[in-house]
Lab assay of single mutants.
Amino acid sequence: TYTYKLTDEEASRRAEDEWRNRGYDVRVRNNNGTWEVEVR
């Protein structure tokens, strides 16, 4: 499981799409203004 911490929502969406396209399960959540993109 990888977790990315990003401050930019758009960057988190791009990361989400990119990993999803590669067949990974992705979750995005906002934690106090930081976007966490979790990849498994």
Rank of each mutant, 00 (worst) to 15 (best):
residue 32 N to Y: 06
residue 4 Y to R: 00
residue 18 E to I: 13
residue 2 Y to E: 06
residue 24 Y to D: 02
residue 33 G to W: 01
residue 3 T to G: 03
residue 32 N to V: 03
residue 36 E to P: 00
residue 4 Y to N: 03
residue 17 D to Y: 13
residue 4 Y to E: 05
residue 22 R to G: 05
residue 16 E to W: 09
residue 39 V to S: 00
residue 24 Y to P: 02
residue 12 S to K: 05
residue 40 R to Q: 10
residue 27 R to Y: 13
residue 39 V to C: 09
residue 12 S to A: 15
residue 18 E to F: 15
residue 24 Y to C: 09
residue 18 E to K: 11
residue 9 E to W: 09
residue 6 L to I: 09
residue 34 T to D: 07
residue 24 Y to Q: 02
residue 32 N to M: 08
residue 10 E to I: 10
residue 23 G to F: 02
residue 40 R to D: 07
residue 28 V to Q: 01
residue 17 D to S: 14
residue 4 Y to V: 08
residue 23 G to Y: 01
residue 15 A to Y: 11
residue 23 G to W: 01
residue 19 W to Y: 06
residue 16 E to Y: 13
residue 35 W to R: 00
residue 19 W to P: 00
residue 22 R to W: 06
residue 19 W to M: 05
residue 37 V to F: 04
residue 8 D to Q: 04
residue 27 R to A: 13
residue 32 N to E: 10
residue 21 N to Q: 13
residue 34 T to L: 12
residue 29 R to T: 15
residue 2 Y to S: 06
residue 4 Y to I: 13
residue 39 V to E: 01
residue 27 R to S: 15
residue 35 W to N: 00
residue 27 R to C: 12
residue 7 T to R: 13
residue 29 R to G: 06
residue 38 E to W: 06
residue 37 V to P: 00
residue 40 R to S: 14
residue 27 R to D: 11
residue 1 T to D: 07
residue 25 D to E: 14
residue 17 D to K: 15
residue 3 T to Q: 05
residue 23 G to H: 03
residue 11 A to H: 07
residue 19 W to L: 07
residue 28 V to F: 03
residue 21 N to M: 11
residue 9 E to N: 04
residue 14 R to F: 10
residue 15 A to F: 14
residue 36 E to T: 10
residue 20 R to V: 06
residue 26 V to T: 04
residue 7 T to S: 12
residue 15 A to M: 15
residue 14 R to T: 08
residue 21 N to V: 08
residue 1 T to G: 10
residue 34 T to S: 10
residue 20 R to S: 06
residue 29 R to A: 08
residue 13 R to E: 04
residue 6 L to S: 09
residue 9 E to P: 06
residue 7 T to F: 14
residue 7 T to K: 14
residue 23 G to S: 01
residue 25 D to Y: 09
residue 34 T to W: 12
residue 14 R to L: 09
residue 24 Y to A: 04
residue 3 T to K: 09
residue 1 T to R: 10
residue 10 E to L: 10
residue 30 N to A: 08
residue 19 W to S: 01
residue 4 Y to M: 09
residue 30 N to L: 12
residue 31 N to Y: 10
residue 35 W to A: 01
residue 31 N to P: 03
residue 27 R to T: 15
residue 8 D to N: 11
residue 18 E to L: 14
residue 34 T to G: 05
residue 13 R to N: 07
residue 38 E to S: 09
residue 20 R to G: 04
residue 27 R to K: 14
residue 37 V to A: 02
residue 14 R to S: 07
residue 25 D to M: 09
residue 17 D to T: 14
residue 11 A to K: 06
residue 9 E to T: 04
residue 12 S to G: 09
residue 10 E to G: 08
residue 31 N to M: 08
residue 3 T to N: 06
residue 13 R to V: 07
residue 17 D to E: 15
residue 21 N to D: 10
residue 34 T to M: 13
residue 17 D to P: 00
residue 30 N to E: 14
residue 17 D to L: 15
residue 36 E to L: 12
residue 32 N to W: 03
residue 34 T to H: 10
residue 7 T to P: 15
residue 4 Y to H: 05
residue 20 R to F: 04
residue 9 E to Y: 12
residue 19 W to F: 08
residue 22 R to L: 12
residue 22 R to V: 04
residue 38 E to D: 06
residue 29 R to P: 03
residue 35 W to D: 01
residue 21 N to T: 10
residue 35 W to G: 00
residue 5 K to A: 11
residue 37 V to S: 00
